Amino acid sequence: MKMNGNEIKVGNIIKHQDTLWVAVKCNAVKPGKGGAFNQVEMKNLLDGRKLNERFRAAETVERVRLDQKPHTYLYDDGDAAVFMNSENYEQIHLQKDFIGDRAVYLSDGMAVELEFYEDKPISVSLPDQVTLEVIETEPVVKGQTAANSFKPAILSNGVRTAVPPFVGTGERLVINTEDGSYVTRAD
């Protein structure tokens, strides 16, 4: 699908220089002299490179639609993670470095979304939050209720994070998978 360069918005995936890019930042510029343009910061979906590019309104770019398919995480296979398509039960092996730092939050049976372009996996979307158990932290200290104080803790997946002082070992917490931060206690 073709679109004008000034119509590119954050999150759009476009084909540029024979590869796929996602728009990270967009800034419409209308200088006093000359024509308006869209200053777009893009990230390469295949290798992570960044690129700043100007697109004039008269330029056309190809907008790409990715196929999103529900998958279930099954297990680790060495340096790979195995996912199963929830619709046709086909399995796919993806390298953990393809998934990135968020691979530590994968747990058996977790529902994820895989995005494909021409039947090639492009990205893995994990849930925004996961529930994990605290396996090691400092003991709870009575009266330590300062609003912005945190203490280190090690979670059941081996990740270190900062938790409030009232959290003890064995408690289940909701953790943000984007940055590994504490959200709240689990019910």
Rank of each mutant, 00 (worst) to 15 (best):
E90H: 11
I8Y: 12
L94T: 09
V112F: 00
D179R: 09
E7M: 09
C26N: 11
A186M: 12
V141P: 02
G180R: 04
I14Q: 05
F116P: 01
A23W: 13
P121Q: 08
P127G: 09
N6E: 12
G109L: 06
D179A: 06
K120Y: 11
V22N: 03
Y75H: 12
N85C: 11
R63N: 07
M84D: 00
V167P: 02
K33S: 12
E136Y: 10
E113L: 14
G78A: 03
D119W: 15
L74A: 03
V40A: 04
K151A: 08
E7R: 10
M3E: 02
N4F: 11
S156R: 06
D76W: 05
E138R: 15
L126K: 09
P152T: 07
D108W: 04
P139Y: 15
C26M: 06
G34R: 00
L46W: 04
K15F: 08
N88M: 01
G11A: 07
N44V: 06
Y89S: 13
R49D: 08
Q144L: 15
S107T: 04
K25E: 05
F83H: 06
I122Y: 12
V124Y: 04
D128R: 15
N148P: 01
L173I: 08
I135T: 08
V130E: 05
D76P: 00
E171D: 07
V163R: 01
K142R: 12
R56C: 08
E62L: 03
M110L: 15
L45A: 03
E90D: 15
F150A: 08
Y105I: 02
Y117V: 06
F83Q: 06
N4T: 13
T145I: 10
E41Q: 15
K50T: 12
G78W: 02
G168Q: 03
I92D: 06
N85D: 15
